[in-house]
Structures are given as C-alpha cells and as structure tokens.
Design a protein around this nucleic acid. Structure first.
Length: 813
RNA sequence: GGGCGAGUGUCGGAAUCGGCAGACGAGGCGGACUUAAAAUUCGCUGGCCGGAACGGCCGUGUGGGUUCGACUCCCACCUCGCCCACCA
C-alpha cells in the first residue's frame, strides 16, 4: 500500500510555511538582475473566477522560472478597487461601497493565496485607499500645471444606465454602447476634464522601445488613426476662411462642393435667409438623431444647401456649400470638400442632389464617359490644369506645395485619437482636486490640502445623481485663492487613471511623501514583463503609456514606456464553449477543483489546455488527465521501486538523457510562454522514467539526481507538489530558492538516430544508424534498404539529396 | 467597407531556418485486476483498399505554383473569429 497524494494537506502545509518564512518577500539585491513581473490586478468583484487563475498562474510560473534563472523577481498584486459595481451595490443593498469593496478584497485575498503564487503581499496596492488615490490627485495637479489636464465644454458620450460620461475608448461597437453595461450611449454637452493624450499621438505610434504583440500595436495604431494629407482653405464669398482636411490633395480639381458638419460654427453665419428655415430644421434633426441613437451604418447621405458659396483656392471656381450629417465635427476640421468622382460618399451625395461629378484621376481603362461609381484608387491626373499627367503620389506633393505658395493650405496630419475624458459623475472614484470659486473660477486644490477625501456619510439613492452633489460637508469649501466660499468639483476620475501608474506604486506602496521614491523606481522600473487580457489594448494599455510619457516630461520617470514586454493570454470559456456567465449557468468555480484535486492540478491543467494566448473551453475531463499525471509523478518519487530488478548497462545513460532532453525542452518552452508543451514534455519524461524504473533504472546512480531534476522542473508549474517532492528527496528547503538546472549537451546526445529514406520525396523506409555518419555512409544506408531498392526498380537515379542528421532523398526517373 | 488573425484526427492541441504529420492529453474500442463498479493498469485508435503484410493509395479549408521534398513559402479563393467603421 503506497502513500497517496494528499494535495490539500500538502498545499496548506507549504503555503503556511512560505508565508511564515516570508519566502516571497522581495527586496533590493544588487547581486542579481532585477525583474519586475506584473500581471493585471483584478477588480474586487467578490469572487475569484477561473479567468483570474488563467491569467495569473501561468504568469506565476514564468515569474518563478525567471527567479530560478537567477533574476531578482518582484511579482506584486493589488486591487483595482474603485468603480461602479461597488456603488451599484450601495444603491441596491444599502452597503457602503468601501465596506463592500473591502469585504470582497478580503475574500479574494484568500482565494489568491490558494493559487500558491509568489505574490509579495507586503507590497499590495488598493486603489480606493486615500494613501493611493491622493497620488492620482497629485498627478492631476501636475498635469494641470503642465497643460496636460484641461476643462472644456464638449458633446460627450453619456451612459444613461451608469449615469456618467465615458471616454471615447469606453464606447464600443457599431451601435455605440457602454463598454461596461451595453447600454446605448447618448450625447450630452457638458463641461468635463480631459487629459491631453493627443499631445503624444505621434510618440504613441512608436512601439520600437518595447516588445509588444503585433496585435496590440495594430489596435493602438488603428485607434490613434494617423492620416496624412493637407488642410485646404476655401473662402466664402463673405470672406470667411473654410478649412477642410483631405488625404487626397491630388483630387483637388475634382472638388465641386463643400459640406459642413451640422455643428460647424460657420453654418449659422453663412446660411442665407432663404435657406435658414430648411437648414435650421436639418441641423435640429441631425442633432436629435445623434442624441437618440445611432442609425444603421449604410444610411443615405443627406444634406441641404445653405445658399452660400465659396471659392476654390486654385481655380477660383464658385462652389456651393452644404450642411450634411455625414460630416463629423469631431474629425479633421469638421468640414470637407467633396470630390464626388473619387469618394463613394461624395459620389452618392452628388448623385442625389444632381451635382457635377468631374473626373480628375483617370481610372484604368477609362473611356472618358461619366463614372457609374466613384473611383477611389490612385492614378494619373486629368482635368487638373498644370498638374495633368502627374501620378497621384507626386501630385499630392505638388498640389500641396502650390497651396502653400498661394497661402491657401498646407500639409497636415489628422488623428482619430481624442483627448481622454476623465470626468465621471459618480461617487466611488478619486475626487478631482478642483474648487470652483465665483470670483476666481476653477482653482486647483493646493498640494498641502491633499488628499481630497471621499466623504463617508454619502447617501446612495437611485436618483442617478452623484451623492457628492448633495453632500454639503464635501461640497461646500473655501477658495484656496481668495478665501471666499466655493464649491468642490463633484466629478471623480475615471478608474483608468488609477491603473495608469499602479505598476510603479508597488515599488514603494507606503510612501506618504511621493507617489514613489526615485531611487526605488530606478531600481525596479519599468515593468519587464506585463501580462493581461487583450481587451485593454486601447484603454488601459494606451493610457498607461500616455501617463508614463507625461510623467517623463515632468521629470518623474527616466524612461519612455511603462511595460517593456507584454503577453496577452486568451479567455477561458465554459465547458459548452461559450463565454462564462451566470445566466448561462456555465461558470466554472476554481475553488471546487482546488478543494478536490488541488491548486497544482488546476494550475497545470490551465497551462496544458493549449497555447496561453488561445484560451478555450474548460474541459472537466481534461483536468482529470492532468490530475493523473501529477499522481504518476507522485508515485514515481514516493513509491519504493520494484525490488530485484537488474538495470541494463545503458540504463543510467538513458535516465540522464531523458532528463536532459526534457530540461532542454522545458527550458525553451518556458522562455517562450509555451506552458502547454512544457507540461507535455514533463508528462513524456514521467512516462519514460516510469518505464525505466520498471526495468531497474532506480538502482542506478542517476536515478536520484533525475528525480530531483524533475522536482526542479515542476517547481514553477506545480509549486506545492514540487516542494514536497524536493524535500522528500533530501533537497534543502526551499525548492523555490534553487537554481534552474542547465541541460548538458553531452547528456542529450543520442548514439543512434532514425534515418528517413525517401524516394522522390516520399518516405519509403526508416533505418537506425549511428549518429554523425557522413554523406557517403548515409548514401550507403539509403541504397542498402530493400524498400528503397524496390521503389528504384526500373528507374535511373538522377540525384541524391542528403540532409545529415535527418534524411536521404533519392531522386529517380 | 477597412484592418488583423486563424483553418491539422471525434475533441484540446503538437510538429513551421521547408525534411518522419497527428507528440502530449481527452474521448472511443479491447484486455488485466475486481463478486461488481470506480480507481489503477496494458494495448489499439486519421481515412480508404487488402484475410493479412514489418503492403499500397489518399490525407493539414479549396484551387494553382515554387521545390528533390510544402501543414510550413508564393498567388487566388472559401470559411470562421476579433477589432475598427459615414475618419474625408
């Protein structure tokens, strides 16, 4: 009767010991290279989900591996503790957001500990503590002084369910819904606070200083949406300059009308009395439409003439001005010149309103007749005066130059990126440290008065309004400038402000004098490896980059990018292949499996499912296979070997070769985040050792070192089991302080190899030959094969391809 | 409409400096152990044609191409997924 594997007891024992010993407390250590490994901190929603395990335990495995490789690894953890769910819980259940959040954090801490991860809890960051958010306010003031934070009236996105404004990044999908709750957003004109992220648009397009997944770079690049072109100044007949932006200055001579966005300031001024009623009605309708709901994407292009005309900057042609809702005030200059022949939208519009459609770029094989459709491609210019015959590329340049010389335009770049709207009309966030004084206007709270603390006695009512608006103790204050009565800003900050710099707070989490000590920051930052979901590609990950660049310009950090390397793990789906959700009833609770099979099994299974960036369905049967694997490892080490077996002379070398070949594979795989194949290699190794053991290999001198090496290789993946086996094998506590073993090229070497024999590229035979044979002998081996000869029968050999160490291919006709 | 990514057994997946397709695991089938079941353990498991072969043919979404040799490279297409989308 062999001792059984009691995962629960083993895991509890070692977790307690590691904790008592402070095994994972990390301090400065100049003798080892630092490695800051951060995985995205969770929102304290109440329960740790299998998705958290999927994100965090492979990260932990990699962090542990790097630690064994000699790095001084800091792997911190914290909580993204501000946010709407806490406030909604307050409204629904009458529990204060602080209490709700802290209770959830308490619960989740315990669940996080059950992972057996190497989190350094002494550095925990909780963003809803004033000791944290005071620095959000501090950064806000710094940004304000630097002109990076500003207040402006704007038509902003408002979620009627969350009762707050949203950043553009938080409005998603073709139907423009709230990223959090899926409610269609509406537009509101409000005075809001913005961070000037657009200042860094060009720099944010430079990814050369880090190694991030191509996918994230592409998403950010598309989001920033840089377009090169020209700004062209038309002039109204009343003398007003009307600036338009185009990416196709080469089509300038094809412009036949202008279209202004309904909100464009010149609409009001230029509309003639005869057209006023119609234009006013149109603008009113357009604004209502955007306010109510976005309509279908393929809706008809509409517009009305405002009765006014402009002059073409190069031809002086008289050009009618329209207002049309397909032109957006928020992009470019809010006005376009329409080139119907070479833009589908303009074409549609021109057709509808019977405007001329002159061709200025000759489509290939053009017969000179009117176009049936817009030709959007590039080509050779026609009907373009002095520019006829030029190709689009050159024409763009030359026409832009001509405009510049005439003082009627210039080369210009436009971005899709908008400034980051950070104001939220909610309680549970960082108060914006601004006071409004009737005499002095918006006045920043002095640094000495920070933090502006959230009042505890707020009332949470389902009115949709922030409780701060009705909390006199908070609201009424004194103007820091003139001492007169004043009111506080009642908006709080987007929680993405918290997560834009939390990675650096880990380095000095209790500093009361600064967000972090400069020396500590230099010692650890930037983040060497960051891991988390792709869903943050254009929100958190872009804001964090912006923040770092702004901090750099304020002299606070000596680098340009917050996270040097990034890995995006996939998403774990329910057993039915769908996204897990309570309503579907397909939610997998990790605690259930931790309680029965153990944390190590859950860890190893999540890593084994497939490539980490792939995610995939949770398979309740699949985890049993991994459970069996760990049982096999357990019994391999713990059970007494079969008695009376006499090992073969090669046994010792075979054991050594098995281990070192596995070491090579596992090392490569962990370097490349290929946890699935690392686990597979360890399975193969365990199976091979099991067979060798049956043949008496346990009697050889290589056996115990092999088992110890196996324990070391398991340490990053299944830390508790590895520790138990390591200590049982006589290793010095702790396995997690051991060096990762190097694989020995000599031990990996095989004496023989399987030589693949092909005839005309098709495998016809496989023979075992001594390793390292030269071409001549490999040829001999090929022609020595009966099967090869059989397939060569009646043919003449034309060529023989020899790939040493792999194959011989005989080419015959 | 634009961009990005992916198509391999029944399933998750392995193998891409071009060189044994299907490692590892799940599932299935069969055997051992057991009164029985579970657990454990051993064997088989891409398809087709063979009684069988230590036989042959086919096979990595489809169709072409390059090559001695293609899951891998090139071209075209199909399907799916994700992101963006009246962006001038």
């Amino acid at each position: 009767m062999s001792e059984s594997y009691d995962a629960k007891a083993i895991e509890a024992k070692w977790q307690a010991r590691w904790n008592a010993d402070g095994l994972y407390r990390v301090g400065a250590d100049p003798s080892r290279p630092k490695f800051l490994f951060v995985t995205m901190y969770p929102y304290p929603s109440g329960d740790l989900h299998i998705g958290h395990w999927y994100a965090m335990t492979p990260s932990d495995a990699k962090a542990r591996y790097l630690s064994m490789r000699g790095h001084n690894v800091l792997f911190p953890m914290g909580f993204d503790a501000f946010g709407l769910p806490a406030e909604n819980a307050a409204i629904q259940h009458g529990i204060h957001p602080y209490k709700w959040t802290m209770a959830n954090i308490e619960r989740m801490r315990g669940q996080l500990r059950s992972m057996g991860a190497m989190f350094d809890w002494s550095r925990e960051v909780v963003t809803c503590h004033p000791e944290y958010y005071t620095w959000n306010q501090w950064f806000f003031l710094k940004f304000y002084e630097a002109g990076l934070a500003y207040r402006a009236m704007a038509a902003v996105d408002w979620c009627p369910n969350c009762n707050t404004t949203l950043a553009r990044e938080q409005v998603v999908g073709a139907d423009r819904v709230c990223e959090r709750c899926g409610t269609p957003v509406i537009k509101k004109d409000l005075e809001q606070w913005f961070f000037r992220i657009t200042k860094y648009a060009d720099e944010l397009l430079d990814f050369s200083k880090m190694e991030w997944p191509e996918r994230v770079e592409t998403l950010q690049r598309n989001w920033i949406g840089r377009s090169e072109g020209a700004e062209i100044v038309y002039t109204s007949e009343q003398g007003d300059p009307i600036t338009v932006f185009t990416t196709r200055p080469d089509t300038l001579f094809g412009a036949t009308f202008l279209v202004l966005a309904p909100e464009h300031p010149l609409v009001e001024k230029l509309t003639t009395p005869q057209h006023r009623a119609e234009v006013t009605a149109y603008v009113y309708r357009a604004r209502r439409q955007t306010e109510i709901e976005r309509l279908a994407e393929d809706r008809e292009k509409t517009g009305v003439s405002i009765g006014a005309y402009a002059r073409h900057p190069l031809t002086n042609a008289r050009i009618p001005i329209y207002v049309g809702d397909y032109v957006l005030l928020t992009y470019g200059t809010g006005a376009i010149h329409a080139v119907p022949a070479h833009d589908s939208r303009d074409f549609e519009f021109a057709r509808k309103y019977r405007l001329p459609i002159p061709v200025v770029i000759a489509p290939p094989d053009w017969d000179g007749k009117p176009l049936a459709d817009a030709y959007n491609g590039e080509g050779v210019l026609v009907n373009s005066g002095a520019f006829d015959g030029l190709r689009s590329q050159e024409a763009k340049q030359r026409i832009t130059e001509a405009l510049e010389q005439a003082g009627r335009g210039r080369a210009a770049v436009t971005y899709r990126l908008r400034d980051w709207l950070i104001s939220r009309q909610r309680y549970w966030g960082t108060p914006i440290p601004i006071v409004y004084c009737r005499a002095c206007g918006a006045v920043p709270v002095p640094y000495a008065d920070l933090p502006v603390v959230l009042p505890e006695d707020a009332e949470f009512l389902p009115t949709g309004e922030s409780p701060l608006k009705h909390n006199d103790g908070f609201l009424r204050t004194m103007c820091p400038k003139c001492g007169g009565t004043a009111e506080r800003e009642t908006d709080t900050m987007d929680t993405f402000v918290d997560s834009s710099w939390y990675q650096f707070r880990y380095l000095d989490p209790h500093n009361g004098a600064a967000p972090f000590d400069a020396a500590k920051l230099r010692a650890w930052a930037p983040v060497d490896q960051y891991t988390g979901g792709i869903e943050h590609a254009v929100m958190h990950l872009m804001y964090a980059r912006f923040f770092t660049k702004a901090m750099r310009d304020l002299g606070l950090v000596p680098f340009d990018e917050p996270m040097l390397r990034l890995f995006n793990q996939g998403i774990i789906l329910g057993p039915d292949g769908n996204r897990m959700s309570k309503s579907r009833g397909n939610v997998v609770n990790p605690d259930d499996y931790v309680g029965t099979m153990g944390a190590d099994v859950v860890r190893a299974y999540l890593m084994f499912i497939g490539p980490w960036d792939g995610g995939g369905p949770w398979n309740p049967k699949g985890i049993e296979g991994v459970h069996r694997f760990l049982l096999r490892v357990w019994h391999l080490v713990v059970d007494p070997p079969p008695a009376g077996r006499v090992p073969s002379p090669e046994a010792a070398a075979q054991v050594r070769r098995t281990i070192h070949q596995t070491l090579r594979r596992v090392t490569d795989d962990l370097e490349g985040f290929r946890f699935n194949t690392a686990v597979a290699a360890l399975m193969e190794c365990t199976n091979a050792l099991g067979r060798l053991r049956e043949e008496g290999a346990a009697e050889t001198a290589e056996w115990q070192p092999a088992l110890r090496a196996l324990a070391l290789m398991l340490a990053p993946l299944t830390p508790h089991l590895a520790e138990e086996l390591w200590v049982r094998l006589g290793g010095a506590y702790s396995v997690h302080r051991q060096a990762w073993p190097a694989w020995d090229p000599a031990a990996v070497h095989e004496d023989t190899m399987t030589l693949v024999l092909q005839v005309n590229g098709r495998v016809r035979d496989r023979v075992t030959v001594p390793a390292g044979l030269d071409d001549v002998h490999l040829r001999e081996a090929a022609f020595g094969s009966d099967k090869v000869r059989k397939f060569l029968d009646g043919k003449s050999v034309e060529d023989v391809i020899v790939v040493p160490g792999k194959l011989v291919n005989v080419v015959a006709r």
